[in-house]
Design a protein around this nucleic acid. Structure first.
Lengths: 214, 214
DNA sequence: GTCTATAGGCCGATAGAC
DNA sequence: GTCTATCGGCCTATAGAC
């Protein structure tokens, strides 16, 4: 199933009602897709959660797949915007600390987005095919090049850049994606700010020391 | 939706045909659930993948939920059996290296199991409620106590045990759960043994050094 | 134990009145 | 732009012949 992820900028009309309703639908759909997955979510549950009649949802989004693709597109854009690259000119310890903190803050603030993306990848990413094919390898290479440079300059240990990036991503996203398990393990219903900061600090300190930059 | 995870030992009869067919169905269902999730998988697709007529699946498993619960139960048992605890008496560097290697080997060998479990947790674990409630906190505390001991004995840095465990779990399971993204980033269709060993070595070395045991 | 045929329910999507 | 009513398809589950 190939599918063009539509840019959600410069859409049709931008009436105030339209914009507000679209937003309500998107937010409702994010919760439904995050919890029940693409197949488990129903247009009816989305509509009810948005406080709108079912056909109204179809009025704004032609069909379920388009609504889902729109959300995936928003998530991908959001990640690209929010997570500016690591700056090779900065000190590795500081740059990495900030990067990990940004990723953790992202997990805390947008857990639904993280989960939707995770579920899609877990399914083999059939609706992200063009995303993963069109230049994803090059994009990833650019993201990790800074590790190469730092290692070459002796600023950090010669750790495999790709796997280091996977380590950072997995460790940080874990707190959004596996929140249920984390909460159960710690015996809480939700991590408070202090607990989340402790998690962040642990991830930061282990990884920084682990690659020899602290 | 509360649900008792049935022990899959000591079931009804154990005729050879029954056992063989049940196995075929379980394996087919694992692939379907891992790829499409609980709602996306259909009893028909399971049956076709198993090479059996649809009602035959219902003959062995009363309904879809029971089949799914049975698989979850198998996965949980498998994890508990395969991942023996860290031995406090062993040297931390060796014990941890072996533990991480076991987890990575598990991701390599049973990616479907890992993905099914991940999807369930991502959904909030409604079918793992009893699992996460009945003593999960205590079980987790036991798993991480060894880190406390090592730290108290000055054998490793005083890293938060719980978050260290999350770091290890997330880093290792990433290679099963996010295989699609990993492959896309590295430009391969599947990691070969050498590449997987490189991943393992990176995870091991960063974490060991990161907590001061190497 | 195996399989055809089908009942019954849910869901996506749309027609068409307002 | 909003909403009621409904069609058609797919899916779970089972009845019942073999």
């Amino acid at each position: 199933m190939e599918l063009e992820l539509p840019s959600h900028k410069g859409e049709k009309s931008t009436g105030r009602i339209r914009k507000k309703n679209e937003e309500k639908i998107i937010n409702a759909a994010k919760e439904e897709f995050a919890e029940k997955g693409y197949h488990g979510a129903t247009m009816d549950s989305v509509a009810r959660r948005a406080g709108l009649p079912r056909p109204n949802v179809h009025y704004y989004f032609d069909n379920k797949l388009q609504l889902y693709a729109e959300i995936l597109s928003i998530i991908v854009d959001l990640w690209d915007d929010a997570l500016n690259d690591l700056d090779p000119a900065e000190e590795p310890a500081l740059a990495l600390r900030e990067y990990i903190q940004r990723k953790m803050a992202f997990s805390r603030r947008y857990p639904l987005d993280s989960r939707i993306f995770a579920k899609e990848v877990l399914s083999g990413g059939p609706r992200l095919e063009t995303y993963f094919q069109r230049g994803y390898r090059a994009w990833f290479e650019r993201k990790t090049r800074v590790f190469h440079e730092w290692a070459a300059q002796g600023k950090m240990d010669p750790v495999d850049p790709a796997h280091l990036m996977f380590l950072i991503w997995s460790a940080t996203q874990h707190y959004a994606d596996f929140e249920t398990q984390v909460n159960a393990a710690l015996g809480v219903s939700k991590l408070n700010d202090e607990e989340f900061d402790a998690a962040t600090e642990t991830v930061v300190s282990v990884i920084l020391k682990g690659i020899g930059v602290s």
